[in-house]
Amino acid sequence: MKVKDFIRNRMAFFSAVIIILIVLFSLVIPAISGFDPAGQDLSSRLCPPDSVHFFGTDELGRDVLTRLFYGTRISLLVALIPTAISVLIGMILGITGAYCGKWVDFMIMWLADVTLSVPGMLLAMVVLYSFGGSFISVFLSLVILEWGSIARIVRSSALSIQESEFITAARTMGVRSLSIILRHILPNLIPTIIVLFTLNIPTSILSESALSFLGIGIQPPGVSLGLMVNQSRQFLFDMPWLALAPAGMIMILVLAFHFLGDALRDILDPRSDI
């Protein structure tokens, strides 16, 4: 039923197709293009697009198309893994807060409030200051940035599920807390969690690209879409495609995940079944 809904929802289907295509291309193109994303060729620096280099070459003679999809691969990885980790942490802490209540809930929500009241970019900058601009520190900064809002949403959904009669019934029957959480609360939270995961991916993509654009995220010789925009900024007026291609890719990815998340929310919302 849900799969049928998904295919019928044109926006969701179209976004999913776009995402799958981009993922496929980012896996295949760097492998088959014949160019090394880091391979410099100083004799063909800053070439305009032609039949050999479809998107031209950058200031070190590297093929932009290859780097574009290679960067997409990295950006997707940096978006998916920290989002998954922050959803997991947010889910565990949100449910724990809602179920335990009292001071456990207070502490968790206080911690969430604390991380949410520092502007995301600056919080990430503090992490990157301490741990340097490596993959792991970008991962870490994105997790610290995102878990709080996820925990809050999961907590409020879990609280409303806990009010339901079937939870009271389970408690009266003497079911243990852990199995109430795992067998009754968690399954009802899954739609919320799937939507939160999908909608947080664009946030991660934008944050990572912003950090790399500022030169404090992924460091060269690593490739990321934000870093590519940063590196080609100096050629903006002569060769705008160098900066616009990676920026456009970020935009397409963000839009596609955004639509997918929105559509999933509509489809998975239990109220829409009624």
Binding site: P202, L206, S209, A210, F213, G226, V229, R233, L236, F237, P240, A243, L244, A247, G248, I250, M251, V254, L255, H258
Partner: peptide, 22 residues
Amino acid sequence: SLFGVSVPIFMVALCLQYLLYF
């Protein structure tokens, strides 16, 4: 408005510089 929420801020800035300055 969808463009508003999905375009990275640096892309907006660079496009503005390209169009309205250059």
